[in-house]
Design a protein around this nucleic acid. Structure first.
Lengths: 204, 204
DNA sequence: AGGGTAACAGACTTATAGGTCTGTTTATAG
DNA sequence: CTATAAACAGACCTATAAGTCTGTTACCCT
């Protein structure tokens, strides 16, 4: 194998496993050795590729975490027609994935935001950046929905986006306990109700 | 001072300060010494009153944390007329309090749920218990609202309660970043919108 | 083929934090 | 006033985890 490829391969393996375990156990409660044990690697390997635990985590946030959020929550909505139905479908898909986790650990992004808030402003910024991209995407989709005749022109797109993000973060936090299937069903049901207020209404 | 009183006083001081710091820095990231330093107490004092860090934390959850959630989110709604307006007022109050925190650390209960999920089923149960009390209270209030003619009889009270809790947890998570005032405003605005769907409608 | 460097192994250092233990103070009872 | 136990102080033990450093393996280039 090419050296450059091997380097990338090892780095990415550590990052991928790192995100998994950080997600499960949290950043502070996860040791570097926990990750390395899983991969049968040594400290030497880790500190050859990364400067510190923090720099390692940031690299994960900027790469894997961003892509994860983007592909599951942003991309399915970006530039699409009929934003409201797309959002429902997208959220439902994401919740279905979560539902099938044997042990679910909530919404990765909000978990980390909770963990780092007030402790590490640096990392917080990277996390908030992802959130911001999501929000902007939702607002854009709603605005486009207005011009395309899917969304009521009178609604406050930013407020709706905030409300959507809030409810999603919340339901994912709740779903960590037992009956996630029922929670998902109830949530999507209410989301549809909420969207009835927002969708375009034929002028009387 | 009476011995019994002094014992209680010290225990409660440690618990109160403990909750504060656990809330700010998280359980795993807070050392016993962090708490004791704040109170100018020693390890001897702590382990005289509590068996372990975990038992200490559980005692906080069952006492202080429960009361905190109860007094701010449950009591203001319990047994009241006109549940929808009461819920809006209650949530708005709670968010206003959060808004005025110089550095806000989110919703205590959901922070701990996020931190302990998958790590300590014992503590998770205590935390979920509080959530359950809240949920039951909301459902009861909504049902009472139906019979009192404030709430549409066709709505699914449990689904609405879930949706409310979700959105509250989410907005509190979002409010940890900068513009909490604007977030609160947007959130309450959308909450009122949502409640228009749910309130009692005069039969045509 | 063999020298050189990237990639990695793993023992070691150091700091932190949970918990123990012995000694000391303080308050109450008799 | 004094014996006694509650309440607390703080040194100490031990485990863990971040990070260092030296040695070893594997791969590439000439």
């Amino acid at each position: 194998m090419d050296k450059q490829l091997k380097r990338m391969a090892t780095m990415q393996r550590i990052q991928t496993t790192g995100l998994e375990i950080f997600y499960q156990k949290g950043y502070h409660n996860t040791s570097i050795d926990d990750i390395l044990k899983e991969l049968s690697l040594s400290k030497g390997a880790f500190y050859y590729h990364f400067q510190s635990k923090e720099e390692f985590f940031i690299s994960i946030v900027q790469n894997l975490l961003f892509r994860k959020v983007y592909s599951s929550l942003i991309e399915p909505i970006e530039g699409q027609e009929d934003p409201l139905n797309k959002i429902v479908a997208c959220f439902d898909d994401a919740l279905e994935t979560a539902e099938h986790n044997f042990l679910d650990y909530g919404f990765v992004l909000s978990n980390f935001i909770t963990e780092f808030n007030g402790k590490n402003p640096d990392i917080m910024n990277y996390l908030q950046d992802i959130l911001k991209v999501w929000e902007v995407n939702l607002v854009t989709a709603l605005q486009k929905g207005k011009t395309d005749g899917y969304v009521d022109r009178h609604i406050d797109s930013e407020a709706v986006a905030t409300y959507l993000i809030s409810s999603y973060i919340g339901i994912r936090t709740l779903m960590v306990e037992g009956n996630s299937k029922m929670l998902r069903y109830k949530y999507i049901q209410q989301l549809r109700q909420y969207f009835k207020l927002i969708e375009y209404k034929e002028p009387a």
